[in-house]
């Protein structure tokens, strides 16, 4: 397939005239500029004082150094607590992803390697649940987490445990589905060979199968990672809008709510919230795009 795609591009390249290419180029970069405009506005206005924004929100800032002043003010603002929100977001995202990848891969492997009525039923349940929107379960979920927490004496609301557990549950469907699709293609002979060599069943998975799942794990990590990092509704329900544990979206929301129309503050906080993921994208662009597209098509 790559060869035919390559030939198509080459053919087109021979065909289209210089004037067409110039026109396309102009259209492309004008569109690009328009797509970037909101971000440009965030950057230039993060480098202004409030009065300057009010007087002229679309002009370049008179003094770019102001951006550092604004960032320092926002980071040190007790209503934002950027670092603690950033660290909470990192902890929640990273731990959830690790748990999702390991648990979903293990589960999917068992489901693929056992062709029985129960494996078919469980797999069907995972697939069917993909259509359940979060809004349908959010209200009972909070009650249920409280009940389980009281029963088990492990508080599940307003802390890491409950939200990581929730993300495992909500990430399970798609992740099991994606791993399931890939593991089906892993030759059984590999596992049988390991079995003959005296590898335990669990060892077979972690030493033989799991390393093979790496590309699929990247897809699962990216799909779930972008969702978890940006998620707002689940944290607001499980962590609460003013709890001790705050993710970045919760912190931005609380901050923007506290300083209505104080754009130099809100836009700077938006800039700080966007920065980590944009930086990540710059370095891992190919993986991110591939992961998100593959995940959707499957």
């Amino acid at each position: 397939m790559p060869s035919t795609a390559g030939r198509k591009v080459k053919k087109l390249r021979e065909r289209s005239s210089v004037s067409t290419r110039v026109t396309l180029c102009v259209i492309g970069f004008v569109l690009f500029f328009l797509f970037m405009l909101p971000f440009i506005l965030v950057i230039i206005n993060s480098a202004k004082e409030r009065m300057e924004i009010m007087l002229n929100p679309i002009a370049l800032p008179s003094d770019w150094v102001q951006i550092f002043t604004n960032i320092r003010d926002v980071i040190n603002n007790p209503n934002f607590s950027y670092w603690s929100a950033f660290i909470d977001s990192v902890i929640i995202t990273v731990v959830s992803l690790a748990v999702i990848v390991v648990c979903a891969a293990m589960g999917a492997w068992i489901l693929v390697r056992n062709k029985t009525w129960w494996s078919a039923l469980i797999f069907m349940a995972f697939v069917a649940a993909m259509v359940v929107p979060f809004q349908v379960v959010m209200i009972p979920l909070v009650q249920w987490l409280r009940m389980m927490g009281d029963f088990l004496r492990i508080p599940l609301l307003r802390n890491y445990t409950g939200i990581v557990f929730s993300y495992l549950g909500f990430g399970a469907s798609l992740s099991v589905f994606i791993f399931h699709g890939f593991i089906k293609g892993v030759p059984l002979e590999l596992e049988e060979a390991a079995d003959i060599d005296g590898c335990s069943r669990g060892g077979t998975f972690f030493r033989i199968v799991f390393p093979l799942l790496q590309p699929t794990a990247v897809t699962v990590i990216i799909l779930n990672g972008i969702w978890i990092w940006n998620d707002y509704l689940l944290p607001v329900m499980v962590l609460g809008p003013n709890g001790n544990v705050q993710t970045l979206p919760l912190a931005v929301s609380a901050f923007a709510g506290a300083y209505v129309k104080q754009w130099e503050r809100i836009l700077t906080s938006a800039l700080l919230a966007m920065l980590p993921i944009i930086l990540l994208f710059v370095f891992a662009q190919r993986y991110i795009i591939r992961g998100m597209v593959e995940g959707s098509i499957k």
């Binding site: 591009v9 087109l12 390249r13 289209s16 290419r21 396309l24 180029c25 492309g28 970069f29 569109l31 690009f32 797509f35 970037m36 909101p38 971000f39 506005l41 965030v42 206005n45 929100p57 972008i226 990092w229 940006n230 998620d231 707002y232 979206p249 931005v252 929301s253 923007a256 754009w263 809100i266 836009l267 938006a270 919230a273 966007m274 993921i277 944009i278 994208f281 662009q285 991110i288 795009i289 998100m292």
Partner: peptide, 30 residues
């Protein structure tokens, strides 16, 4: 199509998708 810089454009058009609706909402409110 065969325009130069198409990979760069692709990535650029994709960027808004990386940022959560919550943060984008405040930006667009502005």
């Amino acid at each position: 199509s065969d325009l130069p810089g198409r990979n760069f454009l692709r990535a650029g058009f994709f960027v808004p998708n990386l940022i959560g609706g919550l943060v984008l909402g405040y930006i667009w409110q502005f």
